[in-house]
Amino acid sequence: MSAAPRETASRKSAKRAKRDHSALGSRLVQAAFVLALLGLWYIGTTYGQISPILLPNPVRVYDELVDVLATLEFVSDLRVTLIELATAFSISATSGVLLGYLISRSQYSIRVFEPLFAGIYSVPIILFLPLYILFFGLGPASKIALGVSTSFFPIVLNTIAGFGYVERAYVLSARSMGASDYQLFRWVLLPAAFPIILTGLRIGFTVALLSILGSETIASLAGLGHRIVHLGEGMDMARMFAYIAFAVAIALTLNTVTSSLEARARRR
C-alpha cells in the first residue's frame, strides 16, 4: 500500500480520537444529570414532607433491590417476561422478514401491502389487548400475541423497503455481468437490504419489549410487569420501586445489546 491510504487511516484515527473525547464529555453530563435526580430524590424524601407511600426513600429502595437480587426472587417473573419476548420476537422476525421479502418481489404487491401495513402500524395496537385476553386468556399467550402484533409491522415494512427499493443500476449491472437469480439475491439484494432490515428488527424488538411489559401491568398472571402492579396494590412501595428499577435495567441492557449488534453488523 502506498502513502495515500495510510494517510487517510491516520486522519481517520485522529478524527475518532476527537469523537471519543466529545463522547466522553457528553457521557459525563448524562451521568451528572442522573446523579442529580437521585440526589433530589434522596433530599426530598429524607428532609422533605413527601409521603413514603408516594415516593419511598432511595436507600430503602436500594435495600429492597439488594434483597430481590440476593434471594433470586426475580428469576421466575423475569423468565416469564423473557420467554414471552423471545417467542413474540421470533414469530414476528421470521414472518415479517419472510413476508416482506415475498411482497417486495413484485411492484404490484408492494403497492397493495405497503400502505396497508403502514396504516395498521399507525393504529394503537394496545387497544386489542382486551380482545387478545378474551381469545388467549390471562397467561403468556395474550402477551405474545400483543408483542407479535406490535413488532411485526416495523419488521415487515423495513424488509419491504430494504428489498423493494434496491437501486436499479445495481440489479442491471449484475444482470449484465451474468448474475444468476441466486447470485443476484446473495450478492446484491441481500447486502443492499440488510442494514434496513436490521433497523426494522431493532425497532421491532424494542416495541415488543415495551408492549409485553405494558400488557403485563394491565392483566396478567406473572411477569415483571405483573409483579410491579401486584406490589403496588399491596402498598409495598419500596419493593415496587426496586422492581421498576430492575425492569428498567433489563430493558436498557437488552436495548443496548440489540443496538450494538446492529451497529456491528452494519460496519461489516
Binding site: 437501486e167 443500476a169 445495481y170 442491471l172 449491472s173 449484475a174 449484465s176 455481468m177 451474468g178 448474475a179 444468476s180 447470485q183 450478492w187 446484491v188 447486502p191 443492499a192 440488510f194
Partner: peptide, 29 residues
Amino acid sequence: PHEIAYVFQENALFPWSTVLENVNLGMMF
C-alpha cells in the same frame, strides 16, 4: 456476459463491497 461488458453512468458499483471485491464479483457472476 461473455461478449459484452457495461460501464454505466454512475452508481453501478456496489457500495457495500470494496473496489477489489466489486471487480471480483463481476468475474464471479
